[in-house]
Nucleic acid binder design. Structure first.
Lengths: 247, 247
DNA sequence: CGCAATCTTGATTTCGATCAACGAGTGTGG
DNA sequence: CCACACTCGTTGATCGAAATCAAGATTGCG
């Protein structure tokens, strides 16, 4: 094999994934597969190692308890790559589109031998898993120690960095998910989220133009309401675009 | 290199680590190093990849917010292997002994080349990171959706599995950490933990012989109070003992 | 023994959940 | 075109769980 710029390069089979994993496989059949999901649609994580890259929309990694309580453990927006845990005993997870979304699915379950034999690929996966752990930790602290206002401000700032659109009047964000979903992500309930949004608006930290759109003039001010900085780049198991030398 | 049983086998340089990682290194200098820690002692995670195996005691991965609130994001008891996130921007983490502890530290920061060139090692690390993610997710759900009683029952059952000692009268657990530490792990405060312990005792789910020792007759009953099953084996980034084929 | 740290318990407050009503927006069918 | 059902979001009233504040009790250690 040759060396080459994989991430976003012309040679990669899925340019939009921008993760470089595809190019490291030995080209056996299960190649990346595009999927479209409607809002509310679920995808079972199934068995075996699979990776997903979000191309559009917003996708959640969810779990639920016996009595129906749901917890969203992670959100992925375009550019994020994620890999659900292969949990068999304790909790079961599924992937759910919170808005119409497009994903690229990479099924590595039949590539176990490739992974075990390709150090570059294996260490890429390790790096990726570490990156994912990092963002889970931040969310864990959020749920363990932040109050409602802090959680919501962190969330709004996070979404602004992820999917906000810079305009002359500030950063405009189209929130592609329902209050219920936000609540399940933040460990609150939907009414509480709605109430806190009102408080945020009253405090002029964000201006809600409609239930699904807000404008932030000063992201730093919003962020400083939470004692944890929001990530400035897409969170999750992402890959930076960079040169990868093939073995 | 030959094939062999590394985990716990006679050939491994650090039998007690039981993780098989050491044996996969090419034997360059920074070899495993034993450390003893007093209660309250901290270890900075520093830069570069390091792995720790707990040999004795109990060790926490901690972080804290600007105003001093502390969150323990993970606990490691003997047999656990863990790898702190190399967080530089958002949160900073440290390792803290909650009781006198012994660790084995493996510094891989100078072995980047070995990792990138050794597929078995790299995929071991990936597997390990995935295992760690799995237990963080369970804790995240605990903090997001469980009430105090559920969190405490899950914790007591978890500790019973991890460090309980089977006796004729039930599973006896010497709790090696303070109420404050339990609270910081469970996202509660120390007084609340103490109150819930009293309720647990009154409900005969566990019998507190002293502030640092309890006996559980029926772990299943304790566990069923929480809507998430406790892990039956040491949580965290653990390795199963198994045959490893060296490349 | 005496002191300090830790644990427990009580009183009160606060925050978020729950229950309930209502309004806005959307889609459907008559 | 309107009537209707339906989902979603907002707001109010009330309740309950946990935090906070404040004693005491217990434990452990020099």
């Amino acid at each position: 094999m040759a060396s080459g710029k994989l991430a976003g390069g012309a040679g990669g089979p899925f340019r939009s994934c921008a993760n470089g994993i595809c190019g490291l496989l030995d080209g056996g059949p299960p190649l990346p597969r595009l999927r479209s999901m409607e809002r509310g649609e679920r995808l079972d994580t199934g068995t075996g190692l699979k990776l997903w890259t979000v191309l559009g929309g917003i996708v959640a990694l969810c779990t639920s308890l016996a009595d129906g309580r749901r917890q969203i453990v992670g959100l992925s927006t375009p550019g994020n790559l994620f890999c659900p845990p292969d949990e068999t005993e304790r909790l079961d997870f599924w992937i759910e589109a919170l808005a119409p979304s497009q994903l690229c699915e990479l099924d590595l379950s039949s590539h176990a031998r490739t992974i075990a034999g390709n150090a570059t690929l294996a260490s890429e996966l390790f790096r990726a898993a570490q990156g994912q752990a990092r963002s889970i930790y931040a969310h864990l602290v959020t749920l363990g120690r932040l109050d409602g206002m802090e959680r919501v401000c962190l969330f709004l700032a996070d979404m602004a960095w992820r999917i906000g659109e810079r305009t002359p009047e500030g950063c405009r964000v189209r929130l592609p998910m329902a209050r219920e979903d936000i609540a399940d992500y933040l460990g609150l309930n939907a009414e509480t989220v709605s109430r806190i949004f009102s408080r945020v608006k009253k405090a002029r930290l964000a201006d809600f133009r409609s239930p699904t759109e807000y404008v932030v003039q000063d992201i730093a001010a919003l962020q400083s309401r939470a004692p944890i900085p929001a990530p400035h780049r897409p969170a999750g198991l992402e890959f930076e675009e960079r040169e990868v030398a093939l073995s």
